[in-house]
Simulated assay, not measured.
Amino acid sequence: MDVSKAVDQRISTRAFLPDALPEAEVREWLTQAQRAPSGGNVQPWRTIAVTGQAKDDVIAMAAPILAADPRGQKTDRPIYPKDLWEPYEARRRRVGEMMYEALDIPREDRPARLAWFANNFRFFGAPLALFLVIDERMGHGQWGHAGMYLQTLALLAEERGWGTCFQECWGVLRPALKEHFNLAPTEMIWCGVSVGKPDKSHPVNTLRAERAPIDEIVEFHGF
């Protein structure tokens, strides 16, 4: 598979087959991803991979916290800026509506929408989950480098026939995850990643998010 195909076909996979991913293959995948770009070769990421009982333990840890308050725990690093402005808010809302349309869950069926959203905290049934750890003392540049690491993971997963879903929603449980994984005082979880073989028969995996037209996001100078 070439890079162009991997970029084009990659989606946020939200339904997975239960097939386990062999440890040797997961190790090889993560080793390959270490070639991701890194300014100054700092490599500001650290990854925690969980499967089996370890993954179930994370799910069990999250459940009572979210049952008590679906908003999760307080954080000084929200997933989106407060009062997200246009055109970004419209894009965010649109992809949500596209997902619920694919699932045939109408806007007025709020219980069904909440029930589906809860699947985020079960990794959508994926057999493997990653948590990306970053040191809070890192600057915006290093956050960008960590993002390039995540993109590299995604494209290499496509090559293997695996699907991925990046889940910043786990950010609402940062204090609990910090304790659960016994992170260093300055470390934090940035996001979770669900990984596995896609269930191609599930309607949610027909969703292909829209992208803005090139002339809306790129200025060409000197051509």
Rank of each mutant, 00 (worst) to 15 (best):
A68F: 10
G125P: 03
G125Q: 02
N119E: 15
D76K: 04
R91V: 08
V26Q: 13
P44I: 01
A63P: 09
A36D: 01
L128V: 15
A60P: 04
A36I: 05
P37Q: 02
R107I: 05
E97D: 12
E25R: 13
P70C: 02
I59D: 08
D76P: 04
E89L: 14
A36Q: 06
T51F: 12
L114I: 11
A129Q: 09
D19K: 11
E25P: 04
G39S: 13
P78N: 01
W29F: 10
E25C: 01
T13E: 01
P111W: 03
P22Y: 06
E28Q: 14
R35Y: 13
I48W: 00
A36W: 05
K74A: 15
R122L: 07
K82R: 12
A102C: 06
T31E: 14
V95L: 07
Q32R: 15
W45F: 00
P81R: 09
D69A: 08
E28N: 14
R71I: 10
R35A: 15
A63Q: 15
A60W: 06
A49P: 02
W116M: 07
V26E: 12
E89V: 13
A20H: 11
G39K: 04
P78W: 00
P106A: 05
P78Q: 03
G72K: 04
T51A: 13
R93A: 14
A126H: 04
P70G: 08
M99G: 02
D56W: 06
A33D: 10
F16Q: 10
A112Y: 05
T13S: 03
Q73Y: 05
M61Q: 05
I105A: 01
A36V: 02
L21A: 12
A67D: 13
P87C: 08
F16T: 10
I105N: 05
V42S: 07
K55L: 15
R113M: 06
K55T: 05
P44Q: 00
D109W: 03
S38E: 03
Y88K: 00
E97I: 10
E23Q: 13
F124K: 03
W29P: 06
I105S: 05
F117D: 14
V95I: 15
A24W: 00
L114Q: 13
D57Q: 12
G39P: 04
L21T: 11
S38T: 11
Q34I: 11
D83W: 08
A102P: 11
I48K: 01
A90Q: 04
N119L: 14
A60G: 04
M61K: 01
R35W: 15
W85S: 14
S12N: 09
D69S: 10
N120I: 07
A36T: 01
I79E: 07
R71T: 14
P44C: 00
G52T: 02
D83L: 03
Y80G: 06
E108W: 06
V42A: 11
Y88F: 12
R91P: 06
R91G: 10
Q32I: 14
G39C: 01
I59Y: 03
P18W: 07
R92L: 08
G39A: 09
A62F: 02
V42L: 12
R122P: 09
G72M: 01
S38L: 01
R110H: 04
F16C: 06
Y80M: 13
A112M: 07
E28Y: 01
G125N: 07
R77C: 12
M98I: 05
R122N: 09
R35V: 15
A20F: 03
E108P: 07
L17W: 06
R91L: 05
R46T: 09
A36N: 05
L21G: 02
D57E: 14
A118W: 02
A68R: 09
W29A: 00
